[in-house]
């Protein structure tokens, strides 16, 4: 979707607050939300659906509220959509469904969590029989349009000419994964000259690389 999240190249956001302090969590609640996102049971969602739910946050909330706050909002939205909680339950802080709660999850130690983190080295690629359409060094054009659903083709490269830099095999296609369908499609790193992307970069030798799925790509004349 052409939402507020698609920030690449947008102007007017001002200088960067470069001094972060270095601590992982600046407020206690940030750590709580991080932890919830790592270990709560979820209703059969995919990472792409979760990202799409975050993109659907109202623009003023997306830009105006703190980062981990938007994770909490996204979690709420995925549970509400799936019927795993209701607004009345959020207000009451209680299970009002009348259904028995599932078996409580066991408490994990830090050691167990470190093992769990190792187990979270998820891979998204798979062997497929289809050969990739493009080869390294070949010129392509990024698709000119997105669509209303989740996509990982940012607006700032649409319609622009690039060159295939690397091929990574077939990876889960996010546009369909956000609808619960697991389909693998060739994935490439594509190099775009900064001069192709931005008027103020004329004459620059700088480059921007994006990882793009095959259906985001066209022949140069396309």
């Amino acid at each position: 979707m052409d939402g507020i999240h698609d920030l690449g190249g947008k102007q007017g956001y001002g200088p960067i607050d470069v001094d972060d302090g270095g601590e992982p969590f600046h407020q206690n609640w940030e750590g709580r939300e991080w932890g919830i996102a790592q270990c709560a049971r979820t209703p059969g969602i995919t990472i792409d659906w979760w990202r799409h739910c975050r993109e659907l946050i109202m623009p003023e909330d997306y830009l105006g509220r703190p980062y981990f706050d938007s994770w909490a909002q996204t979690d709420f939205s995925t549970y509400l959509e799936a019927g795993w909680m209701t607004l009345a339950e959020i207000d009451a802080g209680k299970n009002l469904s009348g259904d028995p709660s599932p078996e409580p999850l066991p408490a994990m130690t830090v050691e167990q969590v470190l093992d769990e983190d190792r187990a979270h080295a998820f891979r998204f690629d798979a062997e497929i029989e289809v050969m990739p359409d493009y080869s390294v060094g070949q010129q392509i054009r990024a698709a000119r349009h997105g669509h209303a659903g989740h996509t990982r083709l940012p607006q700032y490269v649409r319609g622009k000419l690039g060159v295939i830099h690397a091929y990574h095999g077939a990876h889960v296609f996010p546009d369909l994964s956000a609808q619960g369908e697991e389909v693998h499609q060739p994935l490439y790193s594509v190099m775009f000259a900064a001069a192709e992307l931005w008027p103020e970069a004329a004459g620059s030798n700088d480059k921007v690389f994006l990882d793009l799925w095959e259906s985001y790509l066209l022949e140069p004349r396309g």
């Binding site: 992982p24 709580r32 932890g35 270990c39 709560a40 049971r41 299970n95 409580p104 408490a107 969590v113």
Partner: peptide, 18 residues
């Protein structure tokens, strides 16, 4: 309340990443 998360496991994730 709904049995979907364990608070001590959240503590452990915070400590792991701190």
């Amino acid at each position: 309340e709904k049995g979907l998360v364990n608070s001590q496991t959240i503590d452990a994730w915070v400590e792991a990443y701190s």
